[in-house]
Amino acid sequence: MTTTEEATTVIPDFGDDDEERKICFICSKGNLDMAYPALIMANGALSEGVEVDIFFTFWGMDMINKGTWEKLQFSMLGNTAMHMPGSTKHIPQGLGGLPGMTAFATHMLKKQIADLEVPEVPEFMQMLHDMGARFWACKMSVDMMGLTKDDMFDGVEDIINVNEFIELSNGSQVIFI
């Protein structure tokens, strides 16, 4: 019995010889809940050996702007999927507009994320940079917002225009958030 099973020794396929795969994320939103999807997917992609570029544009600039990246917020407004804790009952939209509600919702979401040992945005960006992700800032957004490279996370490679982005994303899978 053992001799036949010995012959079945399986070595996992880690895809070392697979063709290089590339994913480009476009981050266009600066809400806390819209910052995380790209970060989490990029982390997964990098740990699977996939090359990752992230292009930040419009409100997504807040994710790499050192003045704002720690202060991203989550609003209940416009989010009809907000439920009472532990229930499927919807929270009335009007409540989201009450003073202090955005701060409260942001605090709750940050706590839930921290409970899963997922880092806050600045630490997450540094981790992705360490894993080999490349970050790019959108030229038009930078001009519109009056920013310079000094305002941004050191891990940002460069400020590039859309033509350069289209060029560098050649052959990549592109995910717009």
Binding site: P12, F14, G49, E117, P119, M127, M131
Partner: peptide
Amino acid sequence: IRRVATVGGVPTKELFTLFPKKPAK
């Protein structure tokens, strides 16, 4: 990978050098 870096004290970059491409697995 994050836990090995933060709790185990081995920097992320080093993990990618030691176990290339797919360090977690």
